[in-house]
Design a protein around this nucleic acid. Structure first.
Lengths: 152, 152
DNA sequence: GCAATATCCGACTGGTTCAGTCCGCGTTTA
DNA sequence: TAAACGCGGACTGAACCAGTCGGATATTGC
């Protein structure tokens, strides 16, 4: 449970790959898929979703492909996941669902909603750029999580 | 995506209910299920899992049922979720899986593993007791998440 | 213009997981 | 002894995920 779908994984990998190859004008879905050994057609659909969400710019035709629409530092992991898997909620019933109004049961939801926001905040603080800096050099992400642990 | 299973939800609700009724020696699965309007047989299985995990104490026979095996403050949401849904990982391939060793693809995993730990840390910091204090009175959880947002 | 290379998009399938149910067994107490 | 309760395996239907197929459209190079 609580795991990313493979699609979201692939999406993050693809964006990271694009961030690592800024010199090329555009990379095709097949290029990226081959680099990681993932199904090309599946990745293609994912990249289409990311394009529709405005995270990528696409270009059809020969030598076409995809490129980041913003700087890698300006794209958060949260945006990627959200674009692919849709809005996520830890609570199984979102506000407005009937199942919870009938039974005044879910007093649990309030604290969990706060957890949800916390997780979203963490994901928003991590950029594609952070993913490319696989080594320790005190990126945003690492500092943040260290601080979090100190405060808990 | 990234949502708790209903089972985990039910488990948290049940523990919260038990924490709110410390005077009674034991509550049956049916009692709790009726209180929240959830399927009794399903809840029963969940409570059994929590018992096996050591979070609850069970007592068979008439007037039997379940009771917390520790103080509500000493039981974390993480333990409950872990007991019901098993260990969770954000990354789709855990360490040791073959699919990732073949392709040296997953340089993404390291940062995501850190996110995973962060989330686990947040869940560990929330106790059943915190769930019962639905109002604001500056419980652990709230303070923690406020600090997190400041640091990010 | 034509063919190759791309993105784009809907439909489909097989597999897995989740939610929930059924049923029989062991245990405790009145 | 019978009722109330926990225990645990097996099963079903529904939903979702991963991946594939097929075709339409756009762009480029020759």
């Amino acid at each position: 449970m609580l795991k990313l779908t493979k699609k979201a994984d692939y999406g993050l990998m693809a964006l990271k790959y694009l961030a690592e190859h800024p010199e090329t004008a555009a990379l095709s879905a097949k290029d990226i898929a081959d680099a990681y050994g993932i199904p090309a057609q599946l990745l293609a659909k994912i990249l289409q979703q990311l394009t529709k969400a405005g995270l990528l710019r696409s270009h059809a035709g020969m030598n076409g492909g995809y490129a980041l629409s913003r700087e890698a530092r300006e794209i958060s992991a949260y945006e990627v996941i959200h674009a692919i898997d849709g809005p996520f909620f830890i609570t199984s019933c979102t506000k407005g669902s009937k199942s919870c109004e009938l039974t005044p049961s879910c007093t649990i939801k309030e604290p969990l909603a706060r957890v949800n926001e916390t997780i979203a905040g963490v994901l928003k603080s991590i950029s594609i750029q952070d993913l490319t800096e696989q080594e320790h050099p005190a990126g945003h992400a690492q500092e943040a999580s260290r601080l979090i642990f100190l405060t808990l």
